[in-house]
């Protein structure tokens, strides 16, 4: 069942990727031999952008599946751990200090922010590996990072910096280069590998924390894998694309019925579905005729995600979810 879901999603990505390379403000006609700058548009603009959408989407999808398994809650989202706000705070500080203008500083600051949030999370959650305390620690970090971001925005040294921060926070994979792909891809893959390593323990948690421990699940080991896995996938995603919400919440729901419903079985299909969702959403952002420029990817996902979340809540209320 899982193998079929994975093959189906891989086939959809294989179909969507070449189409995404042709779509945009300038539609590329592969049969036109006289198209000027086609190679530059494809290789330097659209291919890294598509690969970045795939990478960030895969990371967010896998993180969402693991989070829902860890918290045994279908409404859980990777943002709950405070790592995305931590990374965003790092990025905001790079704009605030003016370092963002220099090459690698923006993603580096964001990764430092994600790392700081991960370290703080591990420190506060302590040694016993309790899930409730861990989640509360994440919420506190998210809240603190959000407050510090607001403070940084309100104290922006220039209106230009403020504008830059706000636009960046909306999340996008537009105007990115191969540099962002090289930053995000290895970190995301490493993060997904850690989440896959947590798979057995997440399966055991299906029966509750106590039964999971009796099955050999070690709470501290699982907690470390979750901090590392979510930190790398979400941190890398925010570092290169800003805040893109709802992917981690939506995607596991979309693919769960295609799997045997064990959390470990959901991670790879969610990664693939997240990649596909972000790729398709980014293409739509590119081609939608919108006065004043492109629709930001983060906004588009929120516009889709919020009603999805509402429908999910209503279904749960009716006891159908």
């Amino acid at each position: 069942m899982n193998g079929r879901a994975i093959m189906l999603l891989l086939a959809a990505i294989a179909l969507a990727l070449p189409l995404s390379l042709l779509a945009g403000r300038v539609w590329l006609d592969p049969t036109d031999p006289h198209l000027r700058n086609a190679a530059v548009i494809l290789i330097d603009l659209r291919l890294p952008r598509a690969l970045l959408a795939l990478t960030v989407g895969a990371g967010l999808g896998a993180a969402g599946a693991a989070m829902q398994g860890y918290l045994r809650n279908p409404l859980a989202d990777p943002g709950l751990f405070g790592i995305a706000p931590g990374a965003a705070l790092g990025a905001v500080l790079s704009f605030w200090t003016g370092w963002a203008a220099t090459g690698w500083a923006l993603p580096l600051f964001a990764l430092i922010g994600a790392g700081g949030a991960m370290a703080l999370l591990a420190l506060i959650a302590g040694r016993n590996g309790g899930i409730a305390l861990f989640t509360l620690a994440g919420l506190m970090i998210a809240s603190l990072a959000g407050a510090l971001m607001s403070l940084a925005i309100s104290l922006s040294p220039t209106p230009f910096a403020m504008s830059e921060i706000i636009v960046w926070l909306m999340g996008a994979v537009a105007d990115r280069s191969w540099r962002e792909v090289w930053i995000a891809a290895p970190l995301t893959l490493a993060g997904i590998a850690l989440l896959l390593a947590a798979g057995r323990s997440l399966d055991a948690l299906t029966l509750g924390e106590r039964a999971a421990r009796s099955l050999g699940m070690e709470p501290r080991v699982l907690q470390a894998l979750m901090i590392g896995g979510i930190g790398l996938t979400v941190g890398a995603g925010v570092a290169v694309a800003g805040i893109i919400g709802f992917v981690g919440l939506m995607v596991p729901h979309l693919v769960r019925s295609l799997t045997d419903r064990r959390p470990s079985s959901l991670i790879v299909p969610s990664a693939l579905a997240g990649a596909l969702l972000l790729l398709v959403a980014d293409v739509l952002c590119r081609v939608l005729p919108l006065a004043g420029g492109e629709l930001r990817l983060g906004i588009a996902l929120s516009l889709i995600g919020a009603p999805f979340f509402l429908v999910l809540l209503l279904k749960m209320r009716r006891g159908l979810a």
Binding site: L205, T206, L207, L215, R262
Partner: peptide, 22 residues
């Protein structure tokens, strides 16, 4: 344990498979 709630609506066979995790 007492009163186990199974978090995900899996099949009986997949629930039983969890016993092999260790």
């Amino acid at each position: 344990p007492q009163a186990v709630e199974v978090a995900w609506d899996m099949s009986v066979a997949n629930l039983v498979v969890l016993g092999r995790l260790p």
